[in-house]
């Protein structure tokens, strides 16, 4: 499959944005003035990027507790995300959600979700809505190897297969569910084999290779748009970042971490684009500087933005006045 040069460069910028966003958030979180928990997407950038490159604002995604990458790839604003991470009224979710609940319904981002596997029912339901309304859109559920342990996945895949829903299940298998290795919690090498049991095509892809992700996502999304039903993609990704910022990973041996770092998807893509003559060192630095500048401005603005006021604690529980 030939990917247009412009798409390649856009994907590189998206992956670099995710990486720099996560590095910056890690730094700011460690300073101690960002509330809550933060889980970064470092090492997984190629998956969200390669999948979301095929989606419009009317296509839906639902994400995980590790959702910054999906949010950025779907088009959430850096400033809105940062304000949300800092718990400000100006955040994408008005400071009610934070890192694990970033959402932007205007662009089809149905939210990061802190229940492991929480994206699965939501995205399947989004696909159901597309089908009932007769719109030619798709819905993507991102979850991890940990999420593949949840029963909701199998109930949803069964419903999606019998109803031929336009949904794509994207399992980002980084080999670890918090501190439990996938080799312990699954008895098959490839989780995608489980899709066979539902008559759903299962694909395995190197999740550090954005070309491969883009290609397999194209096939699955085209199938869904044609009305032929769901697909399952297992993207094997390196877990370069820890489970959460602050996780010392003492349960993990040095070799495993070193191997993960060798599979860095961003560095791989950069060298591939450089070798193809599409990207110069100057261009990389230019892109980096622009992103860093946006992050600088976003962090400064977020920190200066207003907090929600205490009387807003019950805003948005219901659609209108609750009564009673």
């Amino acid at each position: 499959m030939t990917i247009p040069d412009r798409t390649l460069l856009e994907m590189f910028e998206t992956m670099m944005t995710i990486r720099l966003f996560e590095e910056r958030v890690t730094l700011e979180y460690q300073r101690g003035d960002m509330p809550g928990f933060v889980h970064t997407y470092i090492g997984a950038e190629a998956v969200a990027t390669g999948v979301c490159a095929h989606l419009s604002d009317r296509d839906l995604i639902a994400s995980t507790h590790r959702g910054h990458g999906h949010s950025l790839a779907k088009g959430c604003s850096i400033a809105g995300m940062l304000a949300e991470l800092y718990g400000r009224e100006t955040g994408l979710c008005k400071g009610r959600g934070g890192s694990m609940h970033i959402a932007d319904f205007e662009i089809g981002m149905l939210g990061a979700n802190a229940i492991v596997g929480g994206s699965i029912g939501l995205a399947t339901g989004g696909a159901f809505a597309h089908q009932v309304k007769g719109t030619p859109n798709v819905s993507v559920s991102f979850f991890g190897d940990g999420g593949a342990g949840q029963g909701i996945l199998y109930e949803s895949m069964n419903l999606a297969s019998i109803w031929k829903l336009p949904v794509i299940y994207v399992c980002e298998n980084n080999g670890w569910a918090e501190s439990t290795p996938a080799s312990y919690s699954q008895s098959v090498e490839d989780l995608s084999r489980r899709a066979d049991g539902f008559g759903i095509p299962g694909h395995v892809v190197d999740g550090a290779d954005v070309f491969a992700v883009y290609e397999v996502a194209a096939e699955a999304i085209d199938r869904a748009r044609r009305g032929d039903g769901p697909s399952f993609i297992e993207a094997k990704i390196p877990r370069i970042s820890a489970h959460y910022v602050g996780d010392t990973q003492k349960y993990r041996n040095e070799d495993d971490l070193a191997d993960a770092r060798k599979r860095d998807p961003l560095e791989r893509f950069r060298s591939e684009l450089a070798a193809a003559g599409l990207l110069t060192g100057t261009a990389v630095e230019g892109t980096r500087a622009a992103i860093v500048d946006e992050l600088d401005r976003g962090v400064a603005a977020a920190k200066a933005d207003p907090w929600p006021t205490a009387d807003g604690v019950t805003d948005y529980v219901y659609s209108g006045a609750y009564g009673g």
Binding site: G121, L122, G125, G126, F128, L159
Partner: peptide
């Protein structure tokens, strides 16, 4: 058949899909 559907016995799946579908406009 599009608007009235039998389902398998999958309560979590039924409600999960209802939430996603409701949030997506039906």
């Amino acid at each position: 058949a599009s608007r009235v559907r039998d389902t398998p016995i999958s309560e979590a799946g039924l409600v999960g899909i209802a939430v996603g579908a409701a949030a997506s406009g039906i």
